[in-house]
Simulated scan of single mutants.
Amino acid sequence: MTEPYPYLYPQAGVQTRDRTHTLFAQTMLFVAGTAALFALGAYLGRDFSGGAGILFYILGFASLIGMQFAARRSRELTIGLLAVFGLFIGLALAPTLAFYAEQDPQALWQSGGATALFIAGFGIAGYATKRDLSALARISFWALIGLIAFSIVLIFVNVPNGALIYAILGLVIFAGLTMVDFQRLRRSTDIASAPLMAASIFLDILNVFLFFLQIFSRGDDR
């Protein structure tokens, strides 16, 4: 129940801020750990074939789905599945990243730097804004569904500069999703939600990185 005179209970506001700060710190720690396991997976799987990559994609997203159910039962299991998810997605993308590391390492560094600036900028904007971004969340979700449909069309139809259009649209969509995720992080006080929020933010980072990689590597298209 909301107190009618919250200014009479300043400790409540302090406790809420403390929980928010704790949630932010734990979430970003989980993001960093997931990224580290992703990097480890990318290194261990650098000699894998494309078929192995597909298998680890499936296993990785199975772990992500498992997190949704584990979150209701065990925080430790949820954290473990987050770690497995990061490792498996690293193994899944290892062949792709190894290819770029050999053929166009500059694109990797450019994409990494651009991703850091992108996430920092839109993350800060989403965390700081007081405007409710729930409408943006709905728009971004349906736009993402449309982007997936567009990617399927590109498989069968030769659209001029289709890959570039796809990457740019993806960045626009994930700008919105990144802002939404960081606003959720600021507004929530549920410490138990940290692993799930970390998974969502890590997916934002990963997708943005892959979109930038597609853009920066276009100079080597044959």
Results as ranks from 00 to 15, higher is better:
residue 189 T to V: 13
residue 31 V to T: 07
residue 78 T to P: 04
residue 97 L to S: 04
residue 118 F to Y: 12
residue 54 I to Q: 10
residue 119 I to N: 06
residue 139 I to T: 12
residue 125 A to K: 07
residue 207 N to V: 08
residue 36 A to E: 01
residue 150 F to Y: 15
residue 20 T to M: 14
residue 61 F to G: 03
residue 216 F to M: 06
residue 202 F to V: 11
residue 152 I to D: 01
residue 68 Q to K: 14
residue 171 L to F: 10
residue 6 P to T: 08
residue 187 R to N: 13
residue 11 Q to I: 09
residue 91 L to Y: 07
residue 205 I to M: 12
residue 52 A to L: 15
residue 184 R to L: 09
residue 14 V to W: 07
residue 140 S to W: 02
residue 134 S to V: 13
residue 173 I to C: 07
residue 138 R to V: 11
residue 15 Q to C: 00
residue 68 Q to D: 06
residue 30 F to A: 03
residue 179 M to Q: 12
residue 98 A to V: 07
residue 117 L to F: 13
residue 188 S to Y: 02
residue 44 L to T: 02
residue 215 I to L: 08
residue 150 F to K: 05
residue 200 S to D: 14
residue 212 F to L: 09
residue 79 I to S: 06
residue 179 M to G: 06
residue 17 R to C: 00
residue 75 R to C: 00
residue 75 R to L: 13
residue 160 P to K: 09
residue 42 A to M: 06
residue 90 G to H: 05
residue 107 A to D: 04
residue 85 F to Q: 04
residue 132 D to S: 05
residue 101 A to S: 11
residue 91 L to N: 04
residue 179 M to Y: 05
residue 161 N to L: 14
residue 186 R to P: 03
residue 180 V to A: 05
residue 65 I to M: 11
residue 145 I to C: 11
residue 141 F to P: 03
residue 137 A to K: 15
residue 217 S to A: 11
residue 17 R to D: 11
residue 74 S to R: 08
residue 67 M to Y: 03
residue 41 G to M: 02
residue 86 G to H: 05
residue 192 A to S: 14
residue 160 P to D: 09
residue 202 F to L: 10
residue 156 F to P: 00
residue 218 R to P: 01
residue 197 M to V: 01
residue 62 A to N: 04
residue 16 T to Q: 12
residue 117 L to E: 03
residue 201 I to T: 05
residue 222 R to I: 09
residue 15 Q to L: 12
residue 148 I to M: 14
residue 109 W to D: 03
residue 62 A to V: 15
residue 137 A to P: 02
residue 213 L to C: 04
residue 11 Q to F: 07
residue 29 L to T: 14
residue 221 D to R: 14
residue 200 S to F: 00
residue 88 F to G: 02
residue 70 A to L: 08
residue 159 V to L: 07
residue 36 A to N: 01
residue 188 S to E: 03
residue 25 A to D: 12
residue 95 P to Q: 07
residue 164 L to S: 06
residue 117 L to H: 04
residue 204 D to G: 03
residue 182 F to R: 11
residue 188 S to R: 06
residue 183 Q to D: 05
residue 200 S to A: 15
residue 89 I to D: 01
residue 76 E to V: 14
residue 173 I to H: 09
residue 138 R to C: 01
residue 151 S to L: 01
residue 165 I to M: 13
residue 58 I to D: 02
residue 131 R to W: 11
residue 30 F to Q: 01
residue 182 F to N: 10
residue 127 Y to A: 09
residue 168 I to F: 11
residue 64 L to C: 02
residue 70 A to N: 05
residue 152 I to Q: 05
residue 67 M to A: 04
residue 138 R to F: 08
residue 71 A to S: 13
residue 7 Y to S: 12
residue 139 I to N: 01
residue 47 D to H: 11
residue 89 I to C: 00
residue 216 F to W: 08
residue 154 L to N: 11
residue 51 G to F: 02
residue 219 G to H: 08
residue 99 F to Y: 14
residue 67 M to I: 03
residue 131 R to I: 12
residue 19 R to Q: 13
residue 103 Q to I: 11
residue 170 G to A: 08
residue 162 G to V: 05
residue 106 Q to W: 10
residue 13 G to H: 10
residue 81 L to Y: 07
residue 72 R to E: 09
residue 97 L to P: 02
residue 158 N to E: 14
residue 65 I to V: 15
residue 147 L to A: 13
residue 126 G to I: 09
residue 103 Q to Y: 09
residue 101 A to R: 12
